[in-house]
Write a protein that binds this DNA or RNA. Structure first.
Lengths: 136, 136
DNA sequence: CAGGTTATCGCAAGTTGTCGCGATAGTGAC
DNA sequence: GTCACTATCGCGACAACTTGCGATAACCTG
């Protein structure tokens, strides 16, 4: 079943705009911003409103095709849901970003689950701190 | 040495506006939003611009008197730097917030330090997930 | 305590994202 | 195909900050 069919089978619609947002996410390796996607889409189809891009990202997230992550304090990053999940370390001083295997975060995940009944999504927010290079 | 003197000794100034922001943070137990502080300050001194509140929060953070935390996806929460630090669990479904002792996060902090040379600030961002009550 | 320096302020405009609404156009049913 | 239904769209207004700038007022110096 195609993505379009899957979407339709959930009572949603595959519109031109939605297709373009999906395509843009496909092209981006990972961690794109909504603004960047809007810029790409609008460079070919200027009549498409930025709010449509924002709403489609949200809709595609509800449908399970897309996920967002918070890297630094401000920007939301979007990527397809089928890329391998991983954690992020972001340096508060130099801004460098580093990916770490989710495996490193799993002990914490298990503990939160066991002690608090909380199912943590440890890939959702980056871990902020000071990286090796910036440490005094 | 008073806070005012400390601030002056760093080449900064203790203005009425800065004092009012500090006072508002003092009164708030913890986790206030910038908007809430602005509202309080402006209820008594309407001529004070919201941007002044934002700039003062940032300045006070640079000076080490104030810290901010990210709870849900959007809002930045501010509090005095001298309150006991702790982690947060936020449920993506019902929005409930739970505090957890930083001690629970320390094993991960030590691991990141040892394996990546990264000094994590694990109180900075809440851990997002599904809480016990909302779990299927 | 007067004067000069400059951190900070208030204001206005800009940025990024959200929301309500009437118009449009995918979809399933016939 | 055609039609009705309604998800989605574009638009304009709004919300929550951020930023540039000229004016103001802390504060150090003498």
């Amino acid at each position: 079943m195609s993505v379009a069919d899957e979407i339709r089978s959930k009572g949603k619609r595959m519109t031109v705009q939605r297709r373009l947002v999906l395509d843009a996410l496909q092209r981006a390796r990972h961690h794109t911003t909504a603004e960047e996607i809007a810029r790409q889409v609008r460079s070919r189809h200027p009549q498409i409103d930025p709010s449509t891009v924002y709403r489609n990202l949200e809709a595609l997230e509800d449908l399970g095709y897309v996920t967002h992550t918070h890297l630094d304090d401000r920007v939301t990053r979007w990527h397809r849901a089928d890329v391998e999940r991983h954690g992020h370390l972001v340096c508060r001083r130099c801004g460098s970003e580093q990916e770490i295997p989710l495996r490193m975060l799993e002990p914490l995940g298990r503990r939160l689950r066991a002690e608090q009944g909380f199912r943590a999504d440890l890939a959702h927010s980056a871990i902020v701190g000071i990286c090796r290079e910036c440490a005094p």
